[in-house]
Amino acid sequence: MYTRGPVVVMELPEKLNHAEGKAFLVELQPLLEVDRPRIVLDCSQMQNIDSAGIEILLHCMEETMKRDGDLKLAALSPASAAILELMRVDRLFEVFATADEAAKSFQAVASLEEPQTLPWYSVPRGIADLKAAS
């Protein structure tokens, strides 16, 4: 596990089944209970997933959404992508090629949420101004 600003990146285990998933969830649970958790699950090491594993992913997603946070997946192998698609959960997650890209996507969202120092729009001049100018 490592952090990148407010984003926590966690590597999923090689096998994400009931037993391994439970241990993983114990480790992840405190991170899910903070305010606005921002979590990236790095799937690069994951070689095997079953129905229990998919439920763990959904549980994590649910917990982060409850606290106004988000969970993103990174480095999905073709096999895990195919499984998520078959189980119809692929569209629930944002998926990125690397964990870094996923973490950066959170920062992009965070910067948009901060107050802007300069307006990004221009005010069209009124008719009175146009007349004065002429």
Binding site: D50, S51, P78, A79, A82, I83, E85, L86, M87
Partner: peptide, 30 residues
């Protein structure tokens, strides 16, 4: 409640043509 898309399924073997991978599914419910 599955989504079989761009694939060939044969028994518990599932070939995703999009991801070019063969899955061996050991859960008989799936």
């Amino acid at each position: 409640w599955l989504e079989v898309r761009h694939a060939v399924a044969n028994g518990n073997r599932f070939l995703s043509l999009e991801h070019e991978v063969v899955l061996e599914i050991s859960d008989p419910c799936v």
